[in-house]
Design a protein around this nucleic acid. Structure first.
Lengths: 249, 249
DNA sequence: ACCTGAACACCGTTCAAGT
DNA sequence: ACCTGAACACCGTTCAAGT
């Protein structure tokens, strides 16, 4: 059945307001959904609807959902505030600035923590950050391969702290408190009495505080260790650890 | 239509060979699929089929798929070889033993790395390992909260090293070589010439070797840092870092 | 060049019904 | 107590067809 009445005014324009769908806009909308509703809630159909387009239209701009998620993840690498890195005065300030900025960016977009375990991080923003770190760790005195090893050590530590924390908070729908963990301990019917007592006596009530303390402790360790590497490098030149035949230290 | 012929012999027994479906068996089968085909390939239907049962039968034994994955993940915490931890002589041996065992367990079950970012790790095996670490770090000389902070620092570092590595290898379908990374660098049309030269001159051809070097470098840093914490503790008692009001070191 | 709609081959989960 | 099958409300992705 054809339209019974038709004119320029009733006919919808060739490319309606939703036109101009482009990659940048799609990624922006995807991140909005991810921030608002989380990783599991993002579907191509929902994203299409949010953009006033069919789900399948997206496939003109991205090859598949994984590619879209890669683009979104790269934006998070770009969201790490690295403006202060090159102004950092000394290793301590560099570590503190980078580690907290990186942690902050991940916590602000919790879905990114899960993606890091699933997708490679080889986008332009990831490399931009790597380049910034290269220069900052070079300014701090590292030479040769040690530049990358040092920044990689800090990056690993931050990821390892944040990723399980986010999984925990997602599962409990918010900060986990000491009592919840202790209750699980009790239900295991194994004698963890010392651990239980330690939790009771030593752990802060709020797990967010506990995590912050652990984060600072680890950073202090890294600071000492990296300073020792710097000293060793000054006396013997930029040398690097190599694993022996057993693969152990 | 009823059966036309029926006897004890034609009638199938009450609970056929597939019976006795229990949680342990289900988790074992799930891990088999995960190891063989990866995280994305596990579906409740496929798991049911593997067990000779309907997909929906599984829901009697586990509340949902996430719970099943939690059970599978806990098994990996249990797969970390911790028999040698209590025999470790000194901090260096403890770090080396634990870090390599932990890394090995994760690499042997790559799907577990992605799950750590998605599910909480509060099962019996996770706690068992925590308890083992508590004792080992206590034997190494740590006291009070520092016991947990020290082991947590090492755990974070290992996770942060392994999780992105696994994502990378999954994306490339195997070990990533130096050339692939350099090719991406070239395509970004930003001047990363120094980084490119460093990759060319300093990075091992095989990324697995590069990762092992980074892992050892980080462990050495942690060793130095943790030893410094031990010394500080001996002179002033088990004190702990506390973040100042800005949340920085 | 870009978008649509129908269609395909899947998902996780619920629930009434069976034994 | 444990399992089944049908059904529901979704998925990601392909592809011929439209403009």
């Amino acid at each position: 059945m054809a339209d019974q009445f038709s004119s320029v005014w009733t006919r919808t324009p060739r490319r309606p307001r939703t036109s101009g769908l482009d990659r940048e806009q799609i990624v922006r909308a995807a991140i909005a959904i991810l921030d608002r509703e989380g990783l599991d809630a993002l579907s191509m159909r929902k994203l299409g609807a949010e953009l006033g387009a069919g789900a399948t239209s997206l496939y003109w701009h991205v090859a598949n959902k994984n590619e879209l998620l890669e683009l979104a993840l790269d934006e998070i690498w770009g969201a790490v505030d690295d403006a202060g890195l090159e102004r950092a005065d000394g290793l301590r300030e560099l570590l503190s600035t980078f580690a907290y900025n990186f942690r902050g960016a991940l916590l602000a977009h919790p879905w990114s923590a899960a993606l890091i375990g699933r997708l490679p991080s080889v986008g332009p923003q990831a490399f931009r950050l790597t380049e910034r770190l290269r220069r900052a760790f070079g300014d701090a005195g590292f030479r040769g391969l040690d530049v990358y090893l040092a920044s990689g050590t800090v990056t690993s530590f931050v990821l390892g702290q944040v990723i399980p924390l986010i999984a925990m908070e997602k599962a409990y729908g918010g900060p986990v408190d000491r009592g919840q963990v202790m209750q699980i301990l009790d239900e295991l019917s194994v004698d963890y009495s010392q651990m239980r007592a330690d939790y009771h006596d030593l752990m802060p009530e709020d797990s967010a505080v506990g995590n912050a303390i652990g984060f600072d402790f680890g950073l202090l360790c890294l600071l000492d260790g990296l300073e020792a590497r710097l000293r060793a490098q000054r006396s013997t030149g930029p040398a690097t650890v190599v694993a022996d035949e057993t693969g152990r230290l």
